[in-house]
Amino acid sequence: MKKAKKAALTGILAALALALGYLEFLIPVGIPGVPGVKPGFANIMIMAALYLLGAGEAAVISAARILLSWLLFGSFTSLVYSFCGGALSLAVMLALKKSKAFGFVGVSVGGAVAHNTAQITAASLMLGSGYAFYYLPVLLTAAAVTGTVNGLLLKAALPAAERIVKSNAK
């Protein structure tokens, strides 16, 4: 892939990731009694970058999305939580993908579990209390569900995205 094309694709995926994150912010798809759980659709774009481009581009997209959504509608604490979640999630997804032992769903669920675990750990450290961990079972179950959904969505969308990327390759 040409350098300019790579840059353009990185930009498109970053914009889509930001838009999907914003959509969740506008229309909270929460479950009553289970606050704070989000589907994490933006991760579909991070994973698409992981498969179409590479780890570096995926990291750039993840960081850009976190910074921009923080500037647009976040607080400082949310920035810290987001970075912890984003970094560990990407590391785990990269490891699972490299192992070649898992499909899209496995990579996606692994990323979601890592994201939620990192955020609750960061929250416990910042609040100086381990009690936030009582919420871990809820977050793990949510990660299994949202991770599976996102993995299946990526599996459905990636072949089409690959075709578009390749058809314009000169």
């Binding site: 898992f102 579990v113 871990l136 809820v138 793990l140 179950t141 299994a144």
Partner: peptide, 20 residues
């Protein structure tokens, strides 16, 4: 891979249930 995906998802749910 699909089988391992399923095992991964199932283990996450099991760990969550055990913790709960």
């Amino acid at each position: 891979n699909a089988k391992r995906d399923l095992i991964l998802v199932a283990s996450v749910v099991l760990v969550a249930a055990a913790l709960f």
